[in-house]
Amino acid sequence: MTYATELPAWAALLISLLLLLGSGLAFIGAIGLLRLKNFYERVHAPTLGATLGMGCVLMASMLFFTLLQSRLVIHELLIAALVVVTTPVTLMLLTRAALYRDRIEGNDTVPPPPTGKHQ
């Protein structure tokens, strides 16, 4: 990584911290995916990596390329916007699909469908 010698020390430190925090959160989320007991609890785990984890890695990338190319590089904002909009949608769809399947099978740990729908 010879090109990185041009970076000032504070930037290298900040980028390193952001990278470690981001990947650490993704790792904790993956552990949660493995450890938590049932599907509805596991849905919460990937959100760690998707929100703050992705945000930290994107910030590190923006800072790195902005300093390296000495011009403003902020196209990572596109990924940020995409992840912010899509993660809730996928998680909601997935949870609703799981709830639907549990209700079809008569699993009594999930709440019954609201009464308003069936009239």
């Binding site: 990584m1 010879t2 990185a4 010698t5 970076l7 000032p8 020390a9 930037a11 290298a12 430190l13 980028i15 390193s16 911290l17 990278l19 470690l20 990947s23």
Partner: peptide, 11 residues
């Protein structure tokens, strides 16, 4: 700074 960043990226 290159060494620090190299280790952080590896980690």
């Amino acid at each position: 700074s290159a060494v620090l960043l190299g280790w952080a990226v590896l980690m």
